[in-house]
Write a protein that binds this DNA or RNA. Structure first.
Lengths: 231, 231
DNA sequence: CGGCGGCTTGATCGGTCTCAAGTACGGTGG
DNA sequence: CCACCGTACTTGAGACCGATCAAGCCGCCG
């Protein structure tokens, strides 16, 4: 929640440059740009990466941890637009200001690159330009699916979808949730109590097994899928 | 924190240029491509332009009328993702199939161009490539605003936002709605009855004046804006 | 002028929110 | 290692908003 984040001391080129050895990020021109020219920035849990309507000088790629983009409404409610995980790029819209705030859900590490550098690279290199388009189109698809999820679907359907989406990133059937119930609620357009009750109900119905609040085993993926589809 | 989302996102990319006149479509490489190489296609009201999961061979630009993109859920509910009006381009996502169906809300005319031709032009010409990115980014902004609208906002807030968004396309304070109440309901994640009741309430509160069901005068734009923000 | 689709209005129901306690957990210091 | 604390999560009771079910009404086009 700090107002200003300090870029100066950490803002030196990441000259390790080549590949993070373990678990490489998918190779594409955009990721390459970050890997080669990005400066590393560390964020503490709940620290703000940038604020809403702030001039958009940099774009970011998540290296570790989870980042949320969100907006606050007049009446103080928070709505979460998206969660960004390893490899995800954020801050790359059109317009000169960020349309949402970005905050660290957990301690996180991101790479930062000047947006002008990205645009310059795109103007020079069609491959970068295409990667930029693909990134925007993928973001768009994600946003559209999210808006479909919020339009007239029950709490059960939303939570089931969320769990399945989270599960799609893990190998086994165990979902690690880096975010709080409040984060989930603000993402799904529900309240914290409803999230909690719905998960409890899922457990009663043997659809999931909660090893802890943030560690959930999917006992019946197919039943969840059915639920998510609005059966 | 001003009513940023009332600015029609696709107009942003156009702000450098002149004001849209009644006739002219915004001048940009993508529109040029449609204007020069597009074939004209006429659609009757409710006619399908393409279906969900259909191979995506063409992209389209609306010349006249209104087109909706939508999806049908397992339980038969329809959810409308977006309304597309004159100048809007649809069918240009990544992936080989259309992720939604597209149908004519009113009788409509569209231009169609092969997606492969668009991609080829983008690979050749950086200006086209950039236009493609800007289109995707603008669509993304629109989708994100839509998902924010659907997350935990009251019926009044949703309808007020919808009216203001519609009004942003007309000079005077008169909104012409090309779509039915059912269309609006499926777009806002509400029922047809709730739309109707909310509009009636707005009229009672002297926020709007319904000249007919599809022709609505905004009597107090500022009060509506306040409502839309979640006052 | 008659019929039909689209819109409005009314009564009731149900799901989710709200308010209010309780409980488990992770972290910290003794 | 344990006691403590604060935060996060769960659970309960009741209220409220929008959905549902059910008529009516309007306007449009034949």
């Amino acid at each position: 929640m700090t107002a200003e984040f300090q870029i100066e001391p950490r803002f030196r080129a990441n000259q390790s440059g080549l590949r993070l050895t373990h678990e490489a990020l998918p190779a594409n021109p955009l990721s390459d740009l970050f890997a080669m020219t990005g400066a590393t920035l560390r964020l503490a849990r709940n620290e703000e990466l940038y604020g809403e309507d702030e001039p958009a000088e940099y774009a970011y790629q998540v290296v570790s941890g989870t980042v949320r983009t969100c907006r606050f409404t007049a009446d103080g409610q928070r709505q979460i637009v998206a969660f960004h995980r390893k490899g995800d790029v954020l801050g790359l819209g059109i317009g000169n200001t960020h349309r949402f705030a970005a905050e660290a859900v957990t301690d996180a590490t991101v790479l930062m690159v000047r947006r002008s550098a990205v645009l310059a690279a795109a103007a020079r290199d069609v491959a970068v330009s295409r990667a930029l388009w693909e990134h925007a189109a993928a973001e768009n698809a994600r946003a559209e699916e999210h808006s479909l999820l919020l339009g007239r679907r029950s709490a059960g359907e939303r939570v089931a979808s969320f769990l399945l989406d989270s599960a799609s990133r893990s190998e086994d059937g165990i979902v690690e949730l880096p975010m709080s119930r409040q984060d989930i609620a603000d993402y799904l357009g529900l309240t914290i109590e409803t999230i909690s009750r719905t998960l409890t109900q899922f457990e009663r119905d043997r659809l999931i097994r909660m090893q802890s609040a943030r560690r959930i085993g999917l006992a019946s993926g197919s039943a969840l899928k059915q639920l998510a589809r609005g059966a």
